[in-house]
Amino acid sequence: MNAIFGQEIKKQNIFFKIDGRIKLISAIMSIAILTTISKEEYLAACLAFYILLLCLTGFPVLNTMRRILLPVLFVGFMSAAVTFANFFSVQQNSSVSGAALFLRAFYAILALSSAIYSMTFREFVYSLWALHVPDTLVNLISFTIRYANILNDELWRMVVARKARGYSGGRNFWHTTSMRVIGRLVAVLFLRAAERSQRVYHAMLSRGYSGDMRLLYTPEKLGIRDFAYGALMTMVPLFFKVAEMGEFSWIMR
């Protein structure tokens, strides 16, 4: 959980002070608009604008980039595959270019992860609830995050115990001994995490949990800064969308 939410650096810079609900709504809206833009240069401009905005508001961009490296690499791989497929395709004008796909996905990952990372766990759950996300879904999300920590903790304990008995990582993918050890580790990890989750659930029941998580978070009043941020986040992609539609062609003339 500590890896997901900016618990300890909260409220230290402008981006963290912006209301969580606004950050989530504006991120979702800008992503929705961006998915309709197909010109790569406009998509790149939107992405550049968002990164600039994060930098100007004091958000730790590099740190976040490191966190989202894996999904971005995955998206990069998939986009390369699309580009490769387009290259050999008989279809002359492919509907989606690999670069556009990559830019859209990169923007979506960055926008959502930066919005979530800049909130406390309580603020995140409250934001979902305030946005009328169904209670069941909010509970599900909040428990997934909490229980992911348990899984991570169990994994860490097992890895340490394994190392302590002299195990060193596999040499390659075909190293059967390592693969067997990793296979067993994953199997036992899920069993142990399930058992521990059961104990955590018992502990929750013993403190009166009956299915509803009560929110003890009171958000600050929405201010001009919040609305200005929300407007900027949605207006910029919207501007490029309108430009793509040719509505500003009279300016270019």
């Binding site: 500590n2 939410f5 309580r122 920590n149 521990r196 955590v200 009166g208 949990y209």
Partner: peptide
């Protein structure tokens, strides 16, 4: 097994909230 909330305050408040 018992402490599972993101902050100490949240965890101590879990029971009274319930």
């Amino acid at each position: 097994d018992q402490v599972f909330s993101p902050t100490v305050w949240d965890d101590v408040a879990f029971g009274p909230a319930n």
